[in-house]
């Protein structure tokens, strides 16, 4: 069981690396409505939903560290936000929702929206480099575009959870 757990997290880590390569090497070239999809918060949300609060926080933290290293412009922001969002999604879905595609879909979009709002507020709104209208102009199409990518992210991650034993029970309170 312990061996399966270790292999599961190695596979999750490799999956994140693949998604990161896809995001920075391929998806950034896909421009619709002036923006590209952002699947990285989706990965964090899905894993947090499938694995719970603590695991989601740890996974988000280390995934965020990697994002900070390869995605400009500001260090630390991804690690902190992904840690908090992973913990939040894991906590909410443990208590309130079934672990299925619909929950994963909604959590993904909420996670992306929360990430955009905090990121924009801290780096652009507060320093006066942009206003709320700019947030809507970028975040709204980004969320719409990313929504189309959620199934492609959810399916392999759920496959990992199923394969290595953490079958979503579908329980809710």
């Amino acid at each position: 069981m312990r061996y399966r757990g270790i292999v599961k997290w190695v596979v999750y880590a490799l999956a994140f690396l693949i998604f990161l390569l896809l995001q920075t090497g391929v998806l950034v070239r896909v421009r619709v409505w002036g923006v590209s999809p952002n699947i990285l918060p989706v990965v964090i949300a899905v894993v947090a939903m499938l694995e719970g609060r603590e695991a989601g926080a740890v996974y988000g933290f280390f995934a965020g560290l990697w994002c900070d290293a390869v995605i400009p412009p500001v260090p630390a922001v991804h690690a902190i936000l992904f840690l908090l969002l992973g913990a939040g999604v894991g906590h909410v879905t443990e208590k309130l929702f079934r672990k299925n595609f619909l929950t994963g879909f909604l959590c993904s979009l909420v996670t992306l929206a929360a990430f955009d709002v905090v990121f924009f507020t801290v780096l652009y709104l507060v320093p006066g480099r942009a206003d709320l209208y700019n947030l809507v102009l970028v975040a709204a199409p980004e969320i719409a575009l990313t929504a189309l990518c959620v199934p492609a992210v959810y399916a392999p991650l759920r496959g990992v959870a199923r394969r290595f034993g953490n079958e979503p029970t579908g329980e809710s309170s």
Binding site: T24, V28, V70, P72, P73, Y124, V138
Partner: peptide, 13 residues
Amino acid sequence: TERDASNWASTLT
């Protein structure tokens, strides 16, 4: 090796 990794900034790697 990388361009515009984020929708919020214009950068190249």
